[in-house]
Design a protein around this nucleic acid. Structure first.
Lengths: 214, 214
DNA sequence: CAGCATCCGCTTTGATACTG
DNA sequence: CAGTATCAAAGCGGATGCTG
């Protein structure tokens, strides 16, 4: 990116991460941890492959990411954030929070990736029953199944199907996210095609109080 | 800006404010409050005038700024942030904080505007003697004199010269900022051409504890 | 003068094809 | 898997001109 040539820390930050796609690459590495080139591409639908290569080079030069050659069993290159790159989390978080009201507008041509659920899960969900036994809610939306785990007051989102989920949630990204962000009740989400199997109390355990589950 | 077409709040935020210059325009309005077109231009050295006009139109359409026709005595258009625009403050702040380490690298062709001091002043300075009488420190660097006022534990930065400043600080932006951010001692700053007049205790009142004033 | 709009050369991006 | 190569289209920067 062409520098703004301003002696101001905001301008200087944007000199480094203000380029198109750059902060979305950082988002991917924050959400997924160390990733292969191909996985980054999959998590960044719409990016041109040469641009991804360019940006990765620039990010490496700026000290934000580093390459790591994985040992023989994997035998591939991993890209990971450096400590300085991790420090961009407040920037990505602030953007993500500011963007939440924009999530009500969506169009059918928008792509969705299941691991992006981590952002709203971190923002909206809480374990409201830390003293009860752990629960797992399977979430089926987007490209791969994910599971929300609530245990000891901590929440976690992981990829993959659960063996014996306490509940499962299936549907289009928009109503599923509407439900998880407290903007839709379970009934409203169902009317928008969401299927929920399990005790509503399981879902209520992780949802904010704003909206009744019914 | 071309949309990323991703159903993710970070991508959607960047769809709106990810364009070149957009967040710097927001920075100006956050730092200066409602501003005229000409003042925005002056605070954004390097922007092409048509781009500023384009961005202002886009920001207005996105509900981030609004135009306000000032009454006859001024008789000009003011641009101001809406409530939604003010909510970008955490984004600009996060970028500004992340960019602070980049401020040690500077080049002679970089522009500086005095009101940009507000950002580091808010981040670094504190009133460490809230019970003592107010003090004013005049700061002479950049395009116009500014003054730092410490009173009742509150800090303020305002444009304009002070009538009877308790101290005054004059020099190039880089060492002045180094001093105000605690990276340079007063002695080091002086060796880099900074002139300080007044009791060092006045300066020590607002500086963080990290570095001795001597 | 404040607040733009137009024009033009250059750089960046996007889409696709191709390679070690 | 992890990129490069190519090329058309869009965006940007700089200069200049217009209008109340």
């Amino acid at each position: 990116m062409r520098s703004y040539r301003q002696y101001c820390s905001v301008a200087k930050a944007l000199d480094v991460v203000g380029d198109r796609w750059t902060l979305l690459i950082v988002r991917e590495l924050l959400l997924r941890g160390p990733s292969r080139y191909t996985d980054l591409r999959a998590g960044l639908p719409g990016i041109a492959t040469n641009l991804l290569a360019d940006r990765l080079r620039e990010l490496e030069q700026a000290g934000i990411i580093e390459r790591q050659d994985a040992p023989p069993p994997v035998a591939t290159t991993l890209f990971r954030l450096t400590a300085r790159g991790e420090e961009l989390r407040p920037v990505v978080d602030a953007l993500g929070r500011w963007g939440i009201p924009l999530m009500s507008e969506t169009s059918p041509d928008e792509a969705f990736r299941s691991h992006w659920l981590r952002l709203p899960v971190e923002v909206f969900l809480v374990d409201r029953a830390p003293d009860e036994p752990p629960v797992t809610i399977e979430v089926n939306t987007g490209d791969q199944p994910m599971r929300i785990e609530a245990a000891d007051g901590e929440l976690n989102l992981r990829p993959g199907r659960a063996e014996h989920p306490d509940a499962s949630l299936t549907g289009e990204p928009r109503p599923v996210l509407g439900l998880l962000s407290g903007k839709l009740s379970l009934g409203q989400a169902r009317r928008q095609g969401v299927q929920y199997r399990g005790d509503p109390a399981t879902l209520a355990r992780v949802l904010p109080e704003t909206v009744p589950v019914t």
